[in-house]
Simulated scan of single mutants.
Amino acid sequence: MQVLDEPTWRERAAAHEARVDSATAAHVARRRDHRAHPVEDFLFTYYSFKPAQLRRWHPGAGVGLAGAGGAPHRDWRFYAVDGDVVSVDIEAFATARGDTLRFVRDLLVRTAGRPARFGCFGLHEWAMVYRQGPSAVRHSAWPLRLGASGTDAVVESHQLTCSHFDAYRFFTPEAAPLNAMTPTRETQPQLEQPGCLHAGMDLYKWAHKLVPVVPSDLVMDCFELARDIRSLDMRAAPYDLRELGYEPVPIETAEGKAAYVAEQRAFAERGQALRKRLIAVCDDILHTARDGT
């Protein structure tokens, strides 16, 4: 085990808190003022990790903190104190969260091993408003860039190819049969692929579900990827969000499609690197728990 002296881990904890504060300040201010945001709120509503939870610094499994008496970790779940050192109790975590750990690892490994596909063009957001009345549209406070009929026409002129269940399940009843496949929770491990924006964003979900064995720097790297992907997700959506500073990616045009795919490819590369790091954590925990070392 690597043991950090108290000045070192306190410095790292403070740096992490500052990183999180910078990333979440706008959301925290809006929440205090009861103001909604159609893009950024997603990271704190769809995903269950709150800013205060994200702000807690975890060194990750295999790292001990000297000066345990002054470390808040000693009172947190899945930590144990040995003399003057506090660290993640890997055995306790593996016993309590082993099923989740194995599911996440299996999903990540399968996803990482598939070729990325880049032909969806973000049409899942369009399918979520297809043939909806104005009051039923998900972000009804914001206008549809092409209007209702124009939005429907884009859906009808393309083949929907969404492979992600948690996007597909929000398709309107009229849009769901137009999709090339019918994703379910059970088929998620068979369908998830690394080009999917939602699969990339979900790396943040898998990272925070495995706290505290996943170190906070990796959780934040996944958070920042999810934040950046969400921006593209909504710039390519049918909404006109220019008032908020989001320039549309007009995926109904050839130029828009090319711009979307270029960003999607870059996110897929970032996602694969983070996926590899998460798989390594899972493997280390499973190996350590199995060997009892």
Rank of each mutant, 00 (worst) to 15 (best):
Pro134Gln: 07
Glu192Ser: 06
Phe165Ala: 02
Ala61Ile: 12
Leu218Glu: 07
Ala15Phe: 02
Asp283Ala: 13
Glu263Met: 15
Met181Thr: 07
Pro143His: 13
Ala141Gln: 10
Asp99His: 12
Ala29Asp: 13
Glu17Ala: 15
Pro72Arg: 04
Asp283Cys: 13
Glu174Tyr: 14
Gly64Trp: 04
Asp202Met: 07
Thr293Gly: 06
Asp233Ala: 05
His37Ala: 03
Ala258Gly: 12
Ala14Val: 12
Val39Glu: 02
Pro250Leu: 08
Asp291Trp: 14
Trp206Met: 02
Met234Trp: 01
Ala94Ile: 15
Gln190Ile: 06
Cys282Leu: 06
Ala236Ile: 11
Pro143Trp: 12
Thr187Ser: 15
Leu191Ala: 07
Thr95Gln: 11
Tyr204Gly: 00
Ala268Arg: 14
Leu54Pro: 00
Asp240Tyr: 03
Leu203Ile: 11
Ala167Ser: 09
Lys205Pro: 03
His73Glu: 08
Ala26Phe: 01
Leu210Asp: 03
Ser140Asp: 10
Val219Asp: 01
Ser140His: 11
Leu107Cys: 03
Val20Ser: 08
His124Leu: 07
Pro248Phe: 08
Trp76Met: 06
Thr293Asn: 07
Tyr260Phe: 15
Ile285Lys: 06
Asp166Ser: 01
Val281Gln: 10
Gln132Gly: 06
Ser163Leu: 14
Leu210Gln: 04
Gly119Glu: 09
Ser140Met: 05
Gly98Val: 03
Thr24Phe: 07
Gly271Tyr: 14
Leu191Pro: 01
Ala153Arg: 13
His34Gly: 05
Glu156Met: 09
Val154Glu: 11
His37Cys: 05
Glu17Ser: 15
Ala207Cys: 05
His37Tyr: 07
Ala175Lys: 06
Gly133Pro: 00
Gln264Thr: 09
Asn179Thr: 12
Glu11Ile: 10
Ala280Asn: 07
Gly150Asp: 12
Gln132Ala: 14
His27Ile: 04
Pro194Leu: 09
Asp152Thr: 05
Gln193Glu: 15
Ala262Leu: 13
Ser149Thr: 11
Ala112Thr: 02
Ala167Cys: 13
Gly122Cys: 10
Val219Phe: 01
Ala262Cys: 06
Ala153His: 13
Ala94Met: 12
Val214Asp: 00
Ala26Asp: 08
Ala15His: 05
Asp228Ser: 10
Ala258Pro: 11
Lys276Cys: 09
Trp76Ala: 08
His287Glu: 09
Thr161Asp: 11
